[in-house]
Design a protein around this nucleic acid. Structure first.
Length: 295
DNA sequence: TCCCAGGTCCTGA
DNA sequence: TCAGGACATGGG
């Protein structure tokens, strides 16, 4: 990979498996906007950047300097991981071949732990556009002002400290519904126990089962949400979040005796091992974008 | 009007 | 353990 530095812009050349649309729209990220020129503006880590690709293997990151690229975005976009190898290892049957070909530009992002925790609590029994709206409401109401980009005002996702002043009613006003109490409760627990916050930010170093149990001890976090936090913030690629779409595609294409989530997880673990998280994301993206029959 | 959404919690067997 | 209903909100 070659890096070119321009004024407020970084250009990456010779990058494999990085397609902005796949990375942004595969379901792992909630804070983004598609621009008129088909580029994507992303809000993360207290910054606003815009990614686009003019030709394959060439990625432009606008509103970004070299320090931020090295300190934040290189890891955020998982640029040290070889996705061609992963795709090759996962393409052992027709379903996986089709899914990995469809989502070949996906990279699993390394996102903020606290933001993922709250974001996926909001995702429970909710639609993606609505989840995005609630997160945007919370950010615009309680987050820090980042700046104006292409005529739009952007705010960062609220930090735990910023949540400390927020009431349940404030959260309800952001349209979080019945999840508001759970969010408030989780924030209070983290605020009152600094070691809990430290633990939340150490899930990438914890044993998978221990980390899962830790996350699930929060009200509003079950198996699915915990696995999402582990995968998208904890960098734990053995996590295999089973949601309606993954359930649908797994039950439809694979010979599973019963339809329980436990069996699906076990099947995935045996089939994909520590690449389960990647497999899940290819399957989810393929199932959702192709409107796999509801069953 | 009813149904459902990147689920989770609670209850009763 | 496990099935079944409740839960805010909004779009189809």
């Amino acid at each position: 990979m070659k890096i070119e530095v321009l004024k407020n812009k970084i250009i990456l050349d010779n990058v494999d498996n990085f397609i902005p649309k796949d990375v942004v729209e595969c379901g792992q990220l909630f804070r983004w906007k598609k621009e008129d020129d088909d580029s994507y503006t992303i809000i993360a880590h207290g910054r606003v950047i815009n990614i686009s690709s003019t030709t394959s293997k060439r990625i432009e990151i606008d509103n970004c300097n070299l320090d931020d690229f090295n300190n934040i975005w290189k890891n955020y976009f998982d640029l040290n991981t070889n996705y061609s190898n992963i795709i090759e290892k996962l393409s052992t049957d027709d379903v996986m071949k089709t899914s990995t070909e469809f989502g070949k530009g996906i990279r699993i992002l390394n996102q903020d732990n606290f933001e993922m925790m709250i974001s996926f609590m909001i995702s429970a029994n909710n639609r993606i556009p609505m989840i995005q709206k609630v997160i945007s409401n919370l950010s615009n109401s309680f987050g820090k002002y980042i700046g104006n980009y292409r005529g739009e005002e952007y705010f960062s996702f609220p930090t735990l400290d910023e949540f400390s002043e927020v009431t349940v009613d404030d959260i309800k006003n952001c349209k979080a519904g019945f999840r508001s109490e759970r969010i408030k409760e989780a924030c209070d627990r983290l605020l009152n126990n600094p070691d809990e916050l430290e633990k939340l930010y150490s899930i990438d170093k914890m044993d998978y089962v221990l980390a899962l149990d830790f996350l699930k001890s929060y009200k509003g976090i079950g198996n699915k949400v915990a696995n999402c936090v582990l995968l998208f913030a904890g960098n734990n690629t053995s996590a295999f979040p089973v949601d309606v779409w993954v359930r649908r595609i797994m039950q439809f294409y694979y010979p599973l005796d019963d339809k329980s989530d436990k069996l699906i997880e076990k099947f995935a673990d045996e089939k994909f091992g520590d690449l389960s998280g990647y497999a899940q994301q290819y399957l989810f993206y393929y199932a959702r974008e192709n409107g796999l029959n509801k069953k």
